[in-house]
Write a protein that binds this DNA or RNA. Sequence first.
DNA 1: TGATGTAGTGCATACGAATACATGATTTCG
DNA 2: CGAAATCATGTATTCGTATGCACTACATCA
Lengths: 347, 347
Amino acid sequence: MTAEKTLKRLKQPTMYDVAKLAGVSQPTVSRVLNHNKTAVQISAATRQRVLDAVAELGYHPNVIARSLRTQRTGMISLLVADITNSFYHVIARAVQDVARQRDYEVLISNSDHIYSREMHFAEVLSKRVVDGAILVPIHLTDQDLDGFLSLANAPIVVLGQHIQHPNIDVVYGDDEAAMYEAARWMVNERGYREFGFVGVPEDLPPGPRRWRGFKRALDELGLGIDPRFMVMGDFTIPGGEEAARALIRASKRLPRALFVLNDLMAIGVILTLQDAGYRIPDDVAVIGFDNIPESTIVRPTLTTIAQDSHDLGVRLAEVLFERIDNPNITGRRLFRTACQIIPRQSA
Amino acid sequence: MTAEKTLKRLKQPTMYDVAKLAGVSQPTVSRVLNHNKTAVQISAATRQRVLDAVAELGYHPNVIARSLRTQRTGMISLLVADITNSFYHVIARAVQDVARQRDYEVLISNSDHIYSREMHFAEVLSKRVVDGAILVPIHLTDQDLDGFLSLANAPIVVLGQHIQHPNIDVVYGDDEAAMYEAARWMVNERGYREFGFVGVPEDLPPGPRRWRGFKRALDELGLGIDPRFMVMGDFTIPGGEEAARALIRASKRLPRALFVLNDLMAIGVILTLQDAGYRIPDDVAVIGFDNIPESTIVRPTLTTIAQDSHDLGVRLAEVLFERIDNPNITGRRLFRTACQIIPRQSA
DNA sequence: TGATGTAGTGCATACGAATACATGATTTCG
DNA sequence: CGAAATCATGTATTCGTATGCACTACATCA
């Protein structure tokens, strides 16, 4: 009698168990537990009996069953391009904070910039395990997203202006304008007149935009850029290191200042150039983008362009929840966040 | 007729829809789609008709409904203490890789070392949204975990030797032994004989263990430690900076070498000491713990003790899946991973 | 050739909670 | 004081899938 199968997992109590103990019906239990969300009244006596029974049994609602019935999961997902990139940490934390206030869970995934992982993520979406998704699409196209959006009945919000889908909201830092301003600042305030650029392959989202802002400023100022001083990386520190080595290989003389597409690569560039004997910023100045925490760890500290990533995260989450609460919202809504130059030692 | 409510979300097709289109019953569809997991046979003709119907409708199984029926979610969760600490990134990635191979999703959460968040996480567990959990408990006690374990019918695996629960598997890096070896190495190989220690409050898990290993080596070598050279932080870079300032305040003369409980704090210590005019390692040597990527960014590069975090992550995931597959496993199984000294410039 | 398998399929039900509807008890008001 | 309104609760059904069981058709064997 006592020695039942201890190995067998104990079954969780259900609303029926609570109802039986309290001497009421299962729906009554449901109504007591959701009384804030339902208009139905429950007598104080019944409520108390139910609550006592809940406490006695240690009852927890089964989230799966509830989700099946309500068609809501209480979860949103967040796809970041690189979990090791601190830029996304702040965003993730902000998203989680907003979600926590609404009793939502956040499912964080990591694509490592890999297309198939982004696709996999979108597929999970279409199986309806989450009520909505925030993503940072690097490879996913409007077409891909369109397919998933019509399958999934969940809204999508993206970080990055390049997604043009007519029914996906976009939050972005205005990096094109920021690059433009930064280039002018480097010339006018800092006095640099010869630049190099460490970017990413053309088709990767932030690349073309940041390049355009940069190029526009240079054009207006009547400055050109030597093609040998343009190299590409892959957003990571090793990518930056490789890019720096490529620069050195291409020409023993380096440009006076380097714009690097993001901070991680900028750090890689600095470390490699220093190892090769160049002084930063005396021989080569370096400016990055993102203002990640590591930018204050490198020496010299990294001059960079800050996206207000906390704000980005909060907006992303808020915009998504608006859509979740009100599925009738349509259209491509745009939310812009300004960027800001953070002058430090490297440029 | 065509202009139905476009605003209304389209309903996903269900197995019934597929069944109707294929001219079979719903269970048959289920059997076709799960044929690898079920012993039942299906004729080739029927299978093809069903698959065609699936393709035509773009059917996706509803994961929620399946979970309710099977009592499995296909998700595990991972609670890390600090999402900004790179040490956990490698673990997260390793866990995700193992999970991916088994078609499991990983729900990453972040406690920020906050007790209430750890509790919240455990509660989610007990509502059965995941099939198992990996966690890095900082504040959670054996008692807490015991409560949740008996509520949840899901196994728990933890990182960190301090959890002694008789039914929770433990994976850990052998940091006590590593600190012991590192202390001997600092004395015998590097020649330091006067040490300071930057730790964390006594009750926080890795603290006492790492301290014990360190202390044991010093005792054996007949070296003492000046109480003024012992300060505490909170695992973070700002925590390390504050600790360094406390050290300087306590005595203008600093110890010859500093053991710091983890790399993030070690970096904070280095940056602050440098700003205060101390040369690393000439005035003060610093050794950290974890071997996070940032340890190669600081200058001087950080001498540290490496945990094989990829291995830790893989083990954690594998151990968890073993338990998920075989709920009859009981007991506290221990899995140890060795640590390794990584000599760099800071000590 | 009738008893016995076996492959292929449908029927009914269960998972746990939420909700439309029905019902009985109580109050309200003309 | 009787009809209608209101309150409190129960009954029945639903969400989408998996699975035990029943059933048919056909093959197998003695």
